[in-house]
Amino acid sequence: MSETREPADLTPHLSDPVALTRAICDIPSVSGDERNLADAVEAVLRAQAHLEVLRDGDAVLARTRLGRTSRVVIAGHLDTVPIAGNLPTQLRTLEGEGEVLWGRGTVDMKGGVAVALHLAATQPAPALDVTYVFYDHEEVEATKNGLGRVAANHPNWLAGDLAILGEPTGAHIEGGCNGTIRIEIATTGTTAHSARAWRGHNAVHDLAPVLAALAAHESETVTVDGLDYREGLNAVFVTGGIAGNMIPDRATVTVNYRFAPSRDAAEAEAYVRAVFADIPGLTFTVTDLSEGARPGLDHPVAQGFVEAARAATGAQVNPKYGWTDVARFSRLGVPALNFGPGDPMLAHADDERCPTAQFTAVADALAAWLGRAPGAAAPQEKEDA
């Protein structure tokens, strides 16, 4: 972990989303090492007279207090996966792609962070009240997640009518996200020497009907708020065996079920159990579970944003199949969307890169929406922190 030092000055780049993305990417912030970037972001936010700034650890929040009838949350994580010789960033021109910004974080997701910081500094009187959230520890285990920490410690800081997470979507809109559950399905047998296998009972062989059920399973497509979420049920680990001359007395297949946000945790577990209901002798252990998020596209604020993004960039509206932190907003009752620059297929890649035009397009779409979104009202009393 690097030493804390005087925050880098991001001020010269605030008007240009491309230059700001590059400056932010060039401040290393691998998970657990976000302090310097958090300090630089906080310094920018505290210089804006129209913003109230809050901080929890290395999560920094800023919000307007304009008394609008609606509030939107714009959020992004500060951390990246480890650097792989791909910093400092470089501007490159690639055949078929045009000008790109190359380097760690350009896709996941400092472009989205830069867009949010650009808006915070250049939109002093948006037609919606805005809460900007910059948080730590997204790329590691969920127990360390800065957004989860803020949701637990200060849920009112995240209140809003819509949340937009700047995860990479190629400048399209991805609504909500699927949930995910992992379940270990175990069989038990009796160990014996493999030369006298009839004296034992092979637990690995008992996995055969479980694997057959998975192979035969046809996953559903579930429509939620007008978006079609494709589900998936798959074996992701198989374990068993003691030694090369022993009959195994235990075997396990780990099943991962990616489920539509129409299901809650109990329904997801019940669905998995039902697939194997006719197979005797199985035990089930849930090892990981995260519910999905409904996109909430029926909310007027979300509809207004979708219309503005389509007009500005031609953005398509798709479901989010992978799990993202929009689910944390959903649990707080805030509908949530993913909208940010960068191809998610390049996230974490050593050649991570994003067309520079996407940084500007996403920033322009959000700025145009914030500038004309309905909902202005007389100023209200200051909210409780």
Rank of each mutant, 00 (worst) to 15 (best):
T122C: 12
F359C: 05
P28E: 11
H193Q: 08
G170W: 01
L297S: 05
T4E: 08
E220R: 15
D129T: 12
H193P: 06
A385R: 09
S194G: 14
A349I: 01
D108P: 10
L10R: 00
A349V: 00
F134Y: 13
V224E: 13
A376E: 13
G179M: 09
N256Q: 15
H77Y: 14
E174K: 13
G85P: 08
V18S: 02
T252H: 00
W369D: 00
V133Y: 05
L337M: 13
L87V: 04
A373G: 13
L128R: 15
E381P: 00
E307Y: 00
R328S: 06
G241V: 12
A327P: 00
H172E: 14
E381N: 08
L91Q: 06
E352T: 11
A152M: 02
V107C: 15
I242H: 11
D228N: 13
T188R: 15
N86T: 03
T180V: 15
E381T: 09
V238F: 02
R294K: 15
G304N: 01
F134G: 08
A274Y: 01
L94A: 10
H118F: 05
T89M: 02
N36D: 15
D206E: 15
S219E: 14
R294D: 01
W198D: 14
G371E: 09
L128P: 04
V72G: 01
L332T: 09
N245V: 14
H193E: 08
T80G: 12
N245Q: 12
L346R: 14
H50Y: 14
A43Y: 02
V133D: 02
A159Q: 13
D33H: 13
V133N: 03
T180N: 09
A197L: 07
L346K: 09
P17R: 07
A377V: 04
Y135R: 04
V301A: 03
L117P: 02
R310H: 15
E139R: 03
I24T: 07
Y132D: 03
A84T: 13
G57E: 10
Q48M: 10
H205L: 10
A186R: 05
L87A: 06
T239K: 15
A357I: 02
E139N: 12
T285W: 04
A265N: 06
T131D: 03
G166N: 03
T80R: 11
A114G: 05
L117N: 03
V334G: 02
I279H: 00
P355Q: 06
M1F: 12
F259K: 07
I164C: 01
A120N: 05
N338I: 11
P88H: 08
A315R: 01
V275C: 07
G176H: 06
D136Q: 14
L332F: 10
L117I: 04
A127E: 13
A368I: 00
A120Q: 07
A311L: 07
G32W: 08
L297T: 11
L14G: 06
H172G: 06
L332W: 11
D298W: 01
T190K: 14
S219G: 13
R196D: 10
A192F: 10
R71Y: 05
P155E: 06
A302V: 02
I242E: 15
T324I: 04
D298S: 12
A361R: 11
P248W: 07
L289K: 03
A277T: 03
K144G: 00
Q90L: 14
R149L: 06
T287C: 12
D161E: 09
L297F: 06
P209V: 06
